[in-house]
Computed example of a mutant assay.
Amino acid sequence: MGVNGEKKIARPLRWGMVGGGRTGQVGYKHRTGALRDNTAYQLLAGAFDVDYERCKDFGRNLGVAEDRLYPDYKTMFEEEAKRPDGIEVVSIATPNFTHYEITKAALNAGLHVICEKPLFFSVEEGEEIKKLAEEKGKIVGVTYGFSGFQLLLQMRSMIENGDLGKVHMIELSYTHGFACSDIGDKKNEAQKWRVDPKKSGPSFVLGDLSTHTFYMSQLICPDIKLKEVLCDRQSFVKSRAPLEDNAYVLMHYDNGAVGRMWVSSVDAGSMDSQHIRIVGSKASVEFNDWQPNELIYEVQGKPNQKLYRGMPYLSDACNEFERMNALHTEGLGDSWANIYLKIAMAIDAKNRGDEEALKKINYPDINAGIDGIRWITKCVESADKGGVWVPFND
């Protein structure tokens, strides 16, 4: 077993949260991820809610001391800096439009940052924060929470080993049907801001969903760089316009490969699934997050195979963060735990000045966050120009 709760860093990191309170959708995922291995983080402080009374009530129920429950992030950063046991890393689980200012304030307060995606509204903001993080000697991690499934690294290893031959096609999708009507837009607090361009940015499902799958494809195929995209997006629930609830994206890669992404929140009947298929000249490999414990491996001219999580025939990179062994299933909570543990290891390496160790830790960093911003920006640009090819890097 790769992970069994033993410490991988010298001591747990003193950790706080901004957002992620009772009415949010993602806060529990953050806490599950961070606290799964109780040797990595300790939750000591929080500004969990814009409603201070609700923040205090919620924080008490989490076991956080009341004098470390704060009305806002600015107060938390200021007061925690005065304490000898003040927080050293903060997670930001708030609406998109707040990420930039909170991340900047956290870095200026001397804190490492773990932030929700999409990171910011513009690549320029991302580059500014990257420079600031480098100046402060701090880590900025991004919670692409699905990217901790170990079998994604098995796919990466198979491509690196040449098992698929030359990669020709990258097929991606992330769809669900839970926004087929506008009921949630009006009644669900976590949904309202996602369909408000002032708060969500220039996209809905491209930012909220497809950034996950796009990052996963980059994790699997790190040496295949996206060259250009063509996007067509729709607002089938008309009140969401100009934000899309469905989009199709075509991709061209620098090695000659092509790709497609379908992203939708109006795929009626679909129960929130991501699908990744990498097609090579010799074989294909396929992953679905509904069945994250197995891969479909198809070699041309041979019977199809299922590769199961936790087995010794998988790569060392895949099995390094194995938690349950092959007889027991793993799920999204395990994926989040892997991401949080890797970020903790990156923070620890950064604190120790061990840049060589840091380079070996594969986690969603500030560069992944910037690429996610660029992905959204370029898809929106292409769609708004009438569905034309636009260069990914320019």
Rank of each mutant, 00 (worst) to 15 (best):
Q305R: 13
M271K: 13
S264A: 06
D163G: 01
M76T: 08
F236D: 12
A81K: 15
G165N: 01
K359T: 10
I361P: 02
G256L: 04
Q191D: 10
L43T: 02
V279P: 05
W389F: 03
P71A: 07
A34S: 12
A383M: 05
T23Y: 08
N188S: 14
W193F: 12
V266G: 06
I114K: 10
S284M: 09
R240I: 00
N4L: 13
I370G: 07
I9A: 00
G165E: 01
R60V: 07
R374F: 02
D196G: 12
E127S: 05
N351F: 11
Y313A: 05
A81F: 09
D384P: 01
A317D: 09
P71N: 07
S91T: 09
A241L: 04
I339R: 03
V380D: 01
E228F: 05
I343L: 12
H212P: 09
I139T: 05
K199E: 13
I361G: 07
S200G: 08
F58N: 06
N188F: 10
M251K: 09
S181A: 07
A257T: 02
V50G: 04
I183R: 15
E171S: 12
I376F: 00
L226A: 04
L62M: 11
Q191E: 11
P292S: 04
I366W: 02
N351P: 06
M1A: 14
Q191I: 10
V299W: 01
T377I: 04
G27C: 03
R68S: 07
A45W: 08
Q274G: 14
R11Q: 15
F236T: 15
P197H: 05
I114W: 11
G20D: 01
C379W: 02
P242T: 03
A283N: 02
R240V: 02
P12C: 03
S315C: 08
T75I: 13
E189T: 08
A326M: 14
G256V: 06
G148H: 04
P118Q: 12
L119C: 06
E189Y: 11
N393W: 07
R260E: 09
G269T: 00
M155L: 02
V266N: 08
L314H: 01
L111K: 15
V285P: 07
L219E: 07
E134Q: 14
G369S: 03
F287W: 11
I183F: 14
L206H: 08
G16A: 03
L13P: 00
E160R: 14
I373P: 05
T75D: 11
D208G: 12
E116M: 06
D394Q: 11
N96T: 12
I129A: 08
A133F: 03
G387N: 03
G387D: 02
A40V: 11
G59K: 10
I183E: 13
E124Y: 08
M155T: 04
K166G: 11
C318T: 13
M169H: 15
V266R: 07
E298W: 04
R352F: 06
K56R: 15
N362M: 10
A40F: 10
S91I: 02
L307H: 05
M17W: 01
K192F: 01
T143A: 13
F287R: 08
M76Y: 08
K192V: 03
W375K: 04
V3D: 10
M216A: 15
N108V: 09
S173F: 06
L226E: 05
G20E: 01
K227E: 15
R233N: 12
Y52W: 11
E134W: 00
C221L: 12
G333T: 05
